[in-house]
């Protein structure tokens, strides 16, 4: 074991400090040290998107980020999406459209979709599918996920012009 490193970061708008080994991924740090287990691990090599978090101004698979790299960064996880007890429109749309079955991929999809809607307020189906192709879902066939994201886009940004 190597010497642990102290990391100061901001998670879901709150300052957070944790101690980790350099080999520990950001995903491990979030789940096992900070206790935010909403972010999931599905593959450990960046191909399923279940561990997606927002890191600074972009989304990443947190299994492919070292915890020590989060020093000074701002991170948003699925736990930070809702405003208090009010669900984010994407969360509500996923429930209204039955866009989850087992739910293990859902946190990653929500974070990825949130970033999509910030970049494209009214994404086309093609844009939505392209953006979300780093997120695997094995239950839904993606149909209801795509519909939920597009419904949330209208909820958040109004009908497309």
């Amino acid at each position: 074991m190597s010497v642990k490193v102290q990391v100061q970061t901001t998670i879901n708008n709150e300052p957070v400090e944790f101690l980790c080994e350099p080999r520990q991924s950001l995903l491990e740090c979030l789940r096992d040290i900070v206790g935010l287990t909403g972010t999931k691990e599905g593959c450990g090599d960046g191909n399923c998107g279940s561990c997606t978090v927002k890191l600074g101004d972009r989304i990443v698979t947190s299994c492919l980020v070292l915890g020590v790299e989060a020093a000074g960064e701002s991170i948003t996880t699925v736990e930070g999406l809702a405003h208090g007890s009010t669900l984010h429109p994407l969360q509500k749309a996923f429930l209204d459209h039955a866009a989850l079955q087992c739910g293990i991929c859902t946190p990653g999809f929500l974070i990825a979709a949130d970033a999509l809607l910030q970049k494209h307020p009214h994404p086309t189906e093609e844009q939505t599918r392209f953006w979300l192709s780093n997120n695997l879902c094995r239950c839904t066939g993606y149909d209801k996920i795509v519909r939920a994201v597009q419904a949330a886009a209208i909820e958040i940004n109004g009908a497309a012009q």
Partner: peptide
């Protein structure tokens, strides 16, 4: 179980 599953709880 929807709210738990979309909020990471």
């Amino acid at each position: 179980d929807g709210a738990d599953k979309v909020t990471g709880r």
